[in-house]
Amino acid sequence: MNDDYLWDRSGEPDPATRRLEELLVVYRYKESPVPVQQTRRRSALRWLAAAAMIAIGIIIFARTTARNSWRATVLSGNAPTRVLRTGEELNTHDARVRLESRAIGSIELAPGTKLILAENGERLHRLSLIYGSLHARTTSAPGLFVVNTAFANAVDFGCEYTLTINNDGSGLLRVTAGWVELENSRQSLVPRGAAATILASGELTAPYFENAAPELRDGVVTFQSVRGPARTTALINVLRHARKRDALTLINLFSRANPAERLYIFDRLNELVPAPPGLRRDDVLDWNARTTEPWWPSVVKAARVPPIEKKGKPGWW
């Protein structure tokens, strides 16, 4: 055996040592700053989702009548108001456009926005936002108005909000009144004054108040965007900069964290808003949606936001 090679790979390579090195290299630590594979998989899902949305739009279009429509008005210029039928696609190009419905309220579309009026019935009004930005001001009952995007659905709970979607499916939801539920396989309940980000990977971030510390806002996004040291630093920054009302952000992180991370989230959340009786620190190691359910009412109270009006929904997560 060549001890020099074993020590620092100098000298003649020892065949047995060399063979072991070649075999075992597959187990070597790999830096993984960004979950690339997930992005690729999500990209395929995004196209599938987009295709499904368009297909749904076409099917519904065939079954629509003029009765199920919204009025579309170009806000700049003198173009006449026209009726948007279910299944029709609208591209604002360079103009600002207002959509109005007696049942739902008013939706203002920014230039460069493309959407489909996908569904327009008694129980559900649904827009598919392909890209661009809309500002919704609704007066309808909670749950009646939904905006689909490639990665998530925004469900209105009596509110005012702005939703922006980029060409890659990523985006930002900013809520200025009431609550909006942003959902896919995860859920973010976003109250007045808060925002949530849709990442290009399709992940939804936890909601964060727009007046929270920049370190917290950036940290929430980074925590779910990367792995390795940047994720750890992001979590620590979120915990360090969380105010009492940011407990709402922290409670949303449980579903996005691994068991060890959950312990640190528990500790900080417990400092800000004491855990309810019966909920122990170790309980979050095996977290599921019901684990922290009893904590929600006091967290919402601490966040100083109005109670949510939510029909037929099972819980807060």
């Binding site: 390795g228 750890t232 979590l235 620590i236 691994n258």
Partner: peptide
Amino acid sequence: DDVVQNVFI
């Protein structure tokens, strides 16, 4: 990999 991250936390 997960435990490595936990160590650094």
